[in-house]
Design a protein around this nucleic acid. Sequence first.
DNA 1: TACGATGGATAGGCATAGCCTATGGAGCTC
DNA 2: GAGCTCCATAGGCTATGCCTATCCATCGTA
Lengths: 289, 289
Amino acid sequence: MELHQLRYFCAVAETGSFSRAAEHSHVSQPSLSQQIMKLEDELGARLFDRLGRSVRLTDLGKTFLPRARAVLRELEAARGDVVERKDSISGLITVGVIPTVAPYFLPSRLTSFSRKFPQAEITVVEEITPVLLERLRASTIDVAILALPIRGHEFETTPLLTERLFAALPKNHKLAKRRSLSLKDLRSEPFLLLRDGHCFRDTAVAACDRARLHPQVIFESGQFSSLLSMVGAGMGVSIVPEMAIEKKSHCRYVHISDEQATRTIGMAVLRGRSLTRAHHAFLAHLRAT
Amino acid sequence: MELHQLRYFCAVAETGSFSRAAEHSHVSQPSLSQQIMKLEDELGARLFDRLGRSVRLTDLGKTFLPRARAVLRELEAARGDVVERKDSISGLITVGVIPTVAPYFLPSRLTSFSRKFPQAEITVVEEITPVLLERLRASTIDVAILALPIRGHEFETTPLLTERLFAALPKNHKLAKRRSLSLKDLRSEPFLLLRDGHCFRDTAVAACDRARLHPQVIFESGQFSSLLSMVGAGMGVSIVPEMAIEKKSHCRYVHISDEQATRTIGMAVLRGRSLTRAHHAFLAHLRAT
DNA sequence: TACGATGGATAGGCATAGCCTATGGAGCTC
DNA sequence: GAGCTCCATAGGCTATGCCTATCCATCGTA
């Protein structure tokens, strides 16, 4: 049983004639006859009565007609569904983001994207980098926003922005008035850093390593705002990326002038995954803003 | 878009692998790959992500999967419907019958058939012969029960029974005690006959013609029972087939011994029409009883 | 790091199947 | 009965789906 046989069958049922059905189907009449006969053979029953002049559905043909039409209708629905979806900017986009970026970077971009493409629905997942990478592999998120670089050639990454790092100091700290400082200047300070697992902790520690500084960590937290409150209370100093600076806190922020004291935010997708137009639109939107 | 492509697609979606899907579908892996690619080309979109080791549905593939399954499900429903119906003694049988046969011949046969094949539904249409023939041509009835012979080689006829003709006489008629009579004996009698259009009128008149008798018709009706009541009342004589004899009436029935004074009941179907098993069962039942 | 195993893509050959034209035969019309 | 219509049959062609062999990338393992 093949689709063209069903089409021919419906055409004959509609036109009441093999010849007209053939014309209608853009095939020769013998070809159509042959396919109808083949269909009848396979079903083991006649679908049409050939009555000299005219052709008429048998009782069995009458019951088969709506079923054949149902098959073809489903087929067209399937095709239509695909061609409609593949070109529309719609559907679900699941984006993963690390906690040290999420609150600062995403909100404005999400709202502008949703305004632009109201058909697209976005879900955000906040996780640390290794979790995001695992979820990219499993395709439970479509794109991850995190700090570059990352390990693993199965991902395709695009840098979005590079930001400077700042020292967060208590208001009355001796270095608080400086325009910039070097990490070495913080040698004797107690440090407040993010908890292990957060990649920005590694970024900060790596920067200290390069400055041959081995910070004495007296407090750890999962979010910058906790660190900054403690810094404001005079407990010690911290290192934050530019986007984490809170104007209204009791801290002072001084640019760290060390070479490579930066953080690069980028996005990553699983290499080889095919993305919908909505996905591409979202990636383009991130690149542009 | 072809059915085997949809089957392959579903197989890959279910097994998560081209190779296993190919094995499962009893084709080689390259053949299956080729057909999937062809399907994707036609739809203009990827249905699977080939991620080195594993294969996974794209978002679009996920939406396409239930649609593809729906097509195949409809197809199997269509096939199942046909194979189920073609072999079962069920469905609607519409039988046409002439009025001078209907009440005498059909009832017992219909009940016995229905008892034998309760799945089959029978509708009876009572019409005069030319109407029945026209309805056979139009396939609004499946089989006709009528008096043979009929004109027209587009019908296939089968005789069922031949019955004798009887003269219906008033109880006190001078011929009423005879074992048999000849039509010529009725030369001077007033006749009561069926209305024009009823084929038995033609049968009776033809018999009279052969006996060189030109009956004076004083009453016409559409049914035998009316005629017989009038005969019982002494208005005249009539000719009836054996099956129309009413024991309880005030008539006497005397066998007409003329050559060819008979009526043959038979059935007719449209030549070339394909009949269901239910139809064949009904025809066989009529032949057998 | 190198190797074999696994899994999908590619290449090329083959056979089937669907299509074509030409023709036959039955039924209807004039 | 001649011509027309319409479906079936016959025979040849080509496309397409299938095959085997092979390639290439990835993954697990020594």
